[in-house]
Design a protein around this nucleic acid. Sequence first.
DNA 1: ATATTGCATAGACGCTCATCTATGTGAGGT
DNA 2: ACCTCACATAGATGAGCGTCTATGCAATAT
Lengths: 113, 113
Amino acid sequence: MELIDGNQSIADDCVSMTVGEPLSRKEAETLATALKAVADPTRLQLLSMISGSPSSEACVCGLTEALDLTQPTISHHLKVLVDAGFLTRDKRGKWAWYAIVPERLDVLRGLLP
Amino acid sequence: MELIDGNQSIADDCVSMTVGEPLSRKEAETLATALKAVADPTRLQLLSMISGSPSSEACVCGLTEALDLTQPTISHHLKVLVDAGFLTRDKRGKWAWYAIVPERLDVLRGLLP
DNA sequence: ATATTGCATAGACGCTCATCTATGTGAGGT
DNA sequence: ACCTCACATAGATGAGCGTCTATGCAATAT
């Protein structure tokens, strides 16, 4: 894989292979899984609304009525975000409070090629 | 949408609504479209390999044989990335050279909530 | 106890997407 | 002219995803 050695005499061939750290398939799949969790307009709005809330947490009720989607759909998206590690769920009494996991978003930002 | 005014006396209600910039639906859809283009293992590998190449560009031939996928599939993924603005295509003679658009990735990093 | 409220789960449906095979196109070489 | 090579496009297919309705469950209120 390292074709930029001294004499790359062959100009007739396609010499352009990667040099650095070509990102293995497993690493790529892991990153893609995390990105997929965020690559949805509704989930981006949820993250935005939660991170914009006081103390960066919110319960489902407010989110549901603000997004013009049914409550099960919101619950589904929140579960996706929790499973992906971007949110934590904390059931306090009658309501479920979701909070941002800031470090997780940082990781995403940093790993983006 | 601003429920944190002076006297939020109602402790019996779910008061947790967002305060800052709740990210409109259109903004969310635009961001999600960009993220979807990147949220795929194969496309992440392509970006990694291209950005790791000398002069940050590569032709399809090398990418195809390195990824264990058919050439049309690679071509498809490259088109997705070009359409999303992450790559540019430059056909020079027999080969097509794809190059990274760094600012586009920066935008993504910055806009991530 | 019973009813109500807040949320999660289950199942179904339509649409998008990643991949393939087959074919088209255009540039170079003989 | 013809053939070959590098790549793009078209169409098909199967898997995955976002959304819904219907239902379950747990905590509070009456």
